[in-house]
Design a protein around this nucleic acid. Structure first.
Lengths: 339, 339
DNA sequence: CTGTTAGCGCTTTCAT
DNA sequence: ATGAAAGCGCTAACAG
């Protein structure tokens, strides 16, 4: 069933039917009523492609995700998508996930733009210097960045205070008397990783305490890595008495390794995890309950979707930029060092 | 830059340019070369909507995911999507994720179909009786089901042997001498849940052993639930000496609860988890290493994408149906019961 | 091998 | 308040 058929069946022109269905004011209420009813009855829905071709608008936003790297299609991505979905579903906007092919991200973006399949793009995992941002900004294509980058082109972004998070965590441990604190965070190069490391360093510097570079570890967020690295760290001299984990997955492994070594979490070794708030992994229910730096990645997704909508509605040409604070939540996994 | 402009610039007809770009055989190599080069140079990409409108093909497959339920946008979904992406990216096929609005899944499917935005649909989380399947089959719309349902309309599906998985797990524990085995699995109503319960029961029945209904628990897959339910179970009489967890998330909580009660995993209480193979959560690296029933949800996604492609290529009208075996992998978390 | 001519199904001026 | 007609950018018969 298409517009033509429906119009014929109703004895109306395509124009009128189209107008009736799209809520144009110049159509009589009686006609609109009749048309709406008929459309419903025959299960008519406008062909999205034709509609878009005619209107030049798409009704979808694009997200690019690496196809291979298990890393980036992980739990964080899922939570983020869930957040986006919460907001976008209200507007009947879908999202188009383009799996990244041969790591040539720029060309995927270009293809996405020029093929007119999305109205806007969400960019994730920025590096400090990120050519995707400058490219998109130059192209004048609407986008919102999840994270931050140093590019000085005007653009919208939302990021959490990663530096503050690790600053707080490290400060807390240092103030408790810990002097050898390790951090096991995400891969180097990404802004969030760099910011976190900055926070960690800042806490030490402010207190005039030395930094042991061997205690700063960058790798994937995974249980495995947390486990292996912690075992290694605990076999070295000086043995760290505090560990800051960049994700809950990492923290799970760290926690196991601490126990495997015969220590207790929160006693001989303190542990603070960054918590992106996974609904299926609750820090406060762990044993011991986990001290965390907390910021919901899902909420960020929702807000970013909102920023996108605002941008598309044309109102705000000015770039929206937000940094969300991260709370340090003290629980049982962190305490003064115990011999 | 559109086809018309490109054609004008080249002094060719739109047709020829279109054919050159789409690899039609009747174009001379010289022309094709010239056209390809020009397209690349001017950054021309066909407008996807126009292309689809003309061809009647879309180049995207649809997936429907509940917007609200944190549950179904969890790690399992992410892994599955990753699997799909692995295969679909090769064909430049995107996926359209429609967040489910007011739980009226059927109407979302209908909208998706009639608006011609996807070539096919992937259906997940089937119930034993699932009207989505009959609807899609009747509509003659291409789809593949991840899981199984009892509908006797011909359709393609791929499922793992959930019954066999829990049968093996329960049998193993029973044969080790356990007599009170709990299972903490997913929500009731879904086929996989029912099948798993069936396997659990079958293992008991075959051995002429009674089933304690209180030990069969259905809930969300989460660390929390695993923790809370296990604490509860271990406070009851008779205390279970074996627990089968439906997901790794659940198992993490179970494992913590066992320890919290002062028991050792694999000693006083054995634990077997179903492992969907999360890259960031490795069963063999846990302490103690985890006995699992293993089947990669990512691999299933990849295969389902493949089945979809085959179906779209029209070749196979016959429905493809596959049940994947699940292996029981013995590790340290399961052993004979210890007082 | 290349070009001409119709659509694909919709929205949107411009008339009436 | 309704309709006729002109595209949106592309592909695919049909000619040549």
């Amino acid at each position: 069933m298409n517009l033509k058929e429906l119009a014929e069946r109703l004895g109306l022109s395509q124009t009128t039917v189209s107008r009736a269905l799209n809520g144009y004011p110049e159509v009589s209420e009686a006609t609109r009523e009749r048309v709406t009813r008929a459309a419903l009855q025959h299960g008519y829905t406008a062909n999205a492609n034709a509609r878009r071709l005619a209107m030049g608008r798409v009704g979808a936003i694009g997200i690019i995700i690496p196809a291979d790297s298990s890393q980036r299609f992980g739990p964080h991505t899922a939570e983020f998508l869930a957040g986006l979905a919460e907001r976008l579903s209200a507007h009947e906007i879908d999202f188009l996930i383009s799996p990244l092919i041969n790591n040539d991200e720029i060309s995927v973006y270009k293809r996405l733009i020029s093929s007119k399949r999305v109205d806007a793009i969400i960019v994730s995992h920025p590096a400090l210097v990120d050519e995707r941002i400058t490219m998109l900004a130059k192209a004048g294509f609407p986008f919102v960045l999840h994270g931050r980058t140093e590019a000085d082109v005007p653009h919208s972004w939302l990021d959490i205070d990663n530096q503050g998070a690790f600053y707080q965590a490290a400060s807390h441990l240092l103030d408790l008397g810990h002097r050898h604190i390790a951090m096991i965070d995400g891969l180097k190069g990404f802004t969030f990783s760099e910011h976190r490391e900055l926070g960690y360093r800042q806490a030490h510097l402010e207190r005039g305490l030395p930094i042991d570079e061997r205690l700063i570890i960058h790798d994937r967020f995974s249980d495995d890595i947390g486990f292996a690295e912690t075992l290694r760290l605990l076999s070295c001299e000086p043995q760290p008495t505090g560990i800051i984990a960049g994700s809950m997955m990492t923290a799970l492994g760290v926690s196991r390794a601490i126990r495997a070594k015969g220590y207790q979490v929160g006693k001989q070794v303190s542990l603070i995890a960054h918590d992106d708030v996974f609904p299926y992994l609750n820090a406060s229910n762990m044993v011991p309950s986990m001290t965390t730096t907390r910021s919901s990645i899902r909420a960020a997704g929702t807000r970013i979707a909102e920023m996108l909508m605002l941008q598309l509605d044309g109102a705000a040409v000015t770039a929206m930029q937000e940094v969300w604070p991260v709370e340090l939540i003290l629980r049982q996994s962190s305490g003064p060092p115990v011999r």
